[in-house]
Nucleic acid binder design. Structure first.
Lengths: 337, 337
DNA sequence: AAAGGCCGTGTAAGCGTTTGCACAGACGGC
DNA sequence: GCCGTCTGTGCAAACGCTTACACGGCCTTT
């Protein structure tokens, strides 16, 4: 191993050029008040010494770390990883780095994660949990740095957020199914105790039923599967309820149900129609392909991050509740209307 | 918004208790040399003040940030996100945070990413690129902090790494196919210019052919698709070559080929056998399900991170080239032997 | 009873930047 | 020729912590 050259500091540069630290700092930070000739000399020395500013020291002195925190349920879930990709790309564009934390949607872990991120002095946080318990809210409120929700919602619009209009999306999808004569439509959610499921998806579904004059049946709402395997078990429950159509909150779960039915001799879409809601690759990999609500996942992340940069920059937002447009994609798992 | 209480510092705690900074620092850092009664008083004050150590200041003073960098091609790819999950879980266990950067396997971006991470004074780096160009290697060599490769390999075992024995895995898979009489077996790679493909997967494939006394035909090696859509196009090329079996490096690509063939009236596995190599959910979602090499993705990430903790801790590694065991999973896309 | 150790604590020097303030010199206006 | 402005630069404090070193007191040991 070559001799470990100690990293050059701003001091080394200053000394080499014969100016003060302040001047070097100014050219490094693009401050205008430096004579061109001085600037050139400094730049030359920086290059020769291979000087790289120490972000930690800079963070201490300036109280800005140019680092944000991302707290999410699980990177492994394609929906969230696509959001993250959007966040990360915009973050990079604005020179921020992202500290990632998986919480598995566990609220205690979310609190710990946020606390930890604050300890690291992040300049802002993107939160992707689907739940937002009181402790988490409290933590966020007292954070002292801006937080924006991506693909998630808070009660009373208490936090800046970007997502789609889940109520309308689920209402529309359900309505279309109803229009094709379905009476027993299953709604498959991730959980009964999170706002996005309970206050949005479910509400949209219920509205559609109400408009169609069909009684809501709690038996047709399922919410205990988060993985493909668990989806198989849940699919059996659906089958026992004699549903003829399914609206699912997640693609893997939807494929799981699709496969289960087909493996048991059902024809899709003849015997069962399915529509899912994330439009990940899982929905085009299945046979038949899955009709889906098409959320602009990448954009949700990107826009959320863009909002965060503004907030971190002290700018006021004219609109803190952004709803991005979504589309409905019709594929083989539904009978074209 | 409530009055923005300035965060308490170690100084506030010291003053409140009537001890010196050093003592507070000692109790915060679990140093033994503090009388129990003093420790209790300090702890009480910390609690009352809601004091949280500032990690940035700590990083400056101690020259350790308890932060690592993860540079990866794309979070959105399930293979990498699973590795990342392993990394992240172990990192959390050892109190490290992970800074994530996507490079899309672009070598320039990888260099920039690493440079940036070093600027942020990370204590170590997990690198997941499949390529490792000279500039990237140079950057890593001069990093001054430990770097370990996860699911990747460097020429001459120049860097600590954890993965599986790709050569043997691909050789075995190909051999099994040959044993079933296939003469024209396609090998589908991600690229012809990265070590993992060229020096490992391809070599395993070639060995199998050689043992079987079959001439290697470059026409049967495909490497231009990285996405599902591109996979469809490439599938047409495979079909034109009249292959009867396929070994694919990635599940999404494999499913793409599978679907293409079936959509064109072929029967799988009767007319075409396919085996893939990541065993992500994509391989159980397809119909038929895909036979696959089963890499312990999560473990690769976890073990890599564990190695990194040791390295960051100044420990010597007895073994820097870790090959985790893999299994072969036989599913519907191959004819059971 | 003197010498040596250990324990618990304080002192203060960093760590590598940013940034408010001061100030020297050049320049223009009157 | 004096004064007021700018420009460009330096000075030094501050950011919030860690940590080497020193030291006073008390307990052992011989």
């Amino acid at each position: 191993m070559a001799e470990q050259k100690k990293n050059a500091t701003i001091y080394d540069v200053a000394e080499k050029v014969g100016v003060s630290l302040a001047t070097v700092s100014r050219v490094v930070n693009g401050n205008d008040n430096v004579r061109q000739s001085t600037r050139d000399k400094v730049l030359k020395a920086i290059d020769e010494l291979g000087y790289q500013p120490n972000a930690v020291a800079r963070g201490l002195a300036s109280k800005k770390t140019t680092t944000i925190g991302v707290v999410m349920p699980d990177v492994t879930n394609v929906f969230y990883s696509e959001l993250t990709r959007g966040v990360d790309d915009i973050a990079q564009m604005y020179q921020y780095d992202a500290l990632l934390t998986n919480t598995d949607d566990d609220q205690d872990r979310a609190v710990t994660a946020i606390k930890n991120l604050l300890t690291k002095q992040v300049d802002g946080i993107i939160y992707m949990g689907t739940k937002l318990s009181a402790p988490v809210m409290a933590m966020i409120q007292s954070a002292g740095v801006p937080v924006v929700l991506a693909g998630s919602v808070a009660e009373n619009e208490a936090l800046p957020s970007v997502n789609i209009d889940y109520v309308t999306a689920f209402e529309t999808v359900t309505t279309k199914l109803l229009a094709r004569g379905h009476q027993r439509i299953a709604l498959v959610l991730g959980s009964r105790d999170r706002a996005i499921d309970q206050d949005f998806r479910l509400v949209g579904y219920q509205r559609a039923l109400q408009e169609a004059g069909i009684d809501y049946d709690d038996q047709l709402v399922f919410a205990k599967a988060r993985t493909y395997e668990a989806g198989q078990l849940q699919a059996a429950d659906l089958m026992a309820q004699d549903v003829t159509a399914v609206v699912a909150y997640d693609d893997e779960i939807a494929v799981s149900i699709l496969n289960y039915y087909q493996d048991h001799g059902y024809k899709v879409p003849e015997d069962l129609e399915i529509v899912t809601s994330n439009n990940t690759n899982f929905s085009i990999v299945s046979r038949p392909e899955l009709s889906s609500i098409n959320q602009p996942k990448y954009d949700i992340g990107a826009v959320a991050m863009r909002m965060l940069t503004k907030l971190m920059n002290g700018e006021e937002l004219t609109d803190t509740q952004i709803k991005l447009p979504y589309t409905l994609i019709s594929r083989g798992s539904t009978r074209t209307k």
